[in-house]
Design a protein around this nucleic acid. Sequence first.
DNA 1: TCAAAAGTGTTGTACCTACACCCATGA
DNA 2: TCATGGGTGTAGGTACAACACTTTTGA
Lengths: 247, 247
Amino acid sequence: MSRPPGSDARLAVSTVIFALEPGVTPDGVEHEASGPRSLWIPLVRRLRGPGKDRWALPGGWLGAGEALETAAARTLEETTGVTPAYLEQLYTFGSPDRSPGERVVSVVYWALVRPEETTGAIDDPNVRWFDPDSLPPLAFDHNLIVEYALARLRTKLGYSQIAHAFLDETFTLAELREVYETVLRRPLDPANFRRTVEASGALVETGEVRTGTPHRPPKLYRPAEPADAGANGLFRVPIAPHLRKQS
Amino acid sequence: MSRPPGSDARLAVSTVIFALEPGVTPDGVEHEASGPRSLWIPLVRRLRGPGKDRWALPGGWLGAGEALETAAARTLEETTGVTPAYLEQLYTFGSPDRSPGERVVSVVYWALVRPEETTGAIDDPNVRWFDPDSLPPLAFDHNLIVEYALARLRTKLGYSQIAHAFLDETFTLAELREVYETVLRRPLDPANFRRTVEASGALVETGEVRTGTPHRPPKLYRPAEPADAGANGLFRVPIAPHLRKQS
DNA sequence: TCAAAAGTGTTGTACCTACACCCATGA
DNA sequence: TCATGGGTGTAGGTACAACACTTTTGA
């Protein structure tokens, strides 16, 4: 175990950032429950090096003495100006030929961000938001990475409460259901959705209702206490039953 | 993105190797279905450096131009002399302080091996097999890693067919059930187990039966075609329903 | 013929789906 | 009052758990 020459790979960190496209508001006003949303991810244009001029996941090199998750949050913040509401390690990609010319091992994270936080960096010409289900050819193996992250997001939605990370502190059940419908790309029965979520114990009523709607004011909820067991968020307990990816 | 000084972390690869302890056979003869088994993992004694004299996961440095999974399989083979029947990336651990004195980022894999392959390296004094549920304090953060791998194994058993990787080419339903019972640490109803597995389509009959038992000869099965979609085994489709970790 | 494991049948329960229906509000 | 989304009730289906039962072999 004396130091062999092998360890010359460079360590990079990238993040697949998921957001919900805010509802189409021609004026700048924040409309609640406005229009059909869709899943969006931000990509950055590579200005140099391999994969030049192609779109790529935001990321960067791991800093000295920097934790992996910290590096992911940092590069994410540098790109989009948001702090992630949810951040989890996805996978580490390290094929020797994935970056031409040099050996790069990328620890990839995925993140969920709230919609109103995504308006910051949108008008940078080198940052563009894409529909993750129909991407152009990206730099390196990033198409594969996004595909994998998407699958993980859709699967994990069914047995955890990550959907909350797309929403504000308080939200209605219709808004939460809209998140599920958008991510899973299928409609859900409002009645059954309500019962399933209520039975899971993941939500508590705030006692408030959302006013200003043209109809009956819906109750506002907020997430129950996270109660995340395990060190450094590695073990997140599945609670909410059965909103699976496939019917 | 010009090369910053940050990338000085060393890249290591470790593997949590799961096996089933072979049934207790005082003679050297291979007895089928002999006695209650238990889950076993091999650890190696650290002979130098940080964590000296403690037990640790088998592993090593990533070789130049070597794929991560290849490095995992290589170090696994060097330690135990077996080729894994199943190998999957678990998580990448990279806290700055996890190894005193130097920055090490470890890409950790987990593997399943067949029981008769585990007899090779057992008598090396620097390799010992442990019950993963009651380990001594290991080097570095390896206790946490084993705990995480165990959770993944038990969860994944419920929605995939990895249990086959513990067994030979052909096996009886009782043997397969014993794998589940050992890993999940609870008894399963033979009748319901049979129906669940048969309905999953994961098994096909060989037409043979296992003779030499004192009782009715059971049919022998083998796994159905893997049908693993997706590149490099990243996407493994869940099929077998509902043999969950908790009742 | 007996013991024990292999394999089959059956019933209850829990949960999910579908959809009918009532409730509350702004316009 | 009406339209509409919020919210409740309920019947049918599916799947799993429990366990009684039959089958098949070696001894």
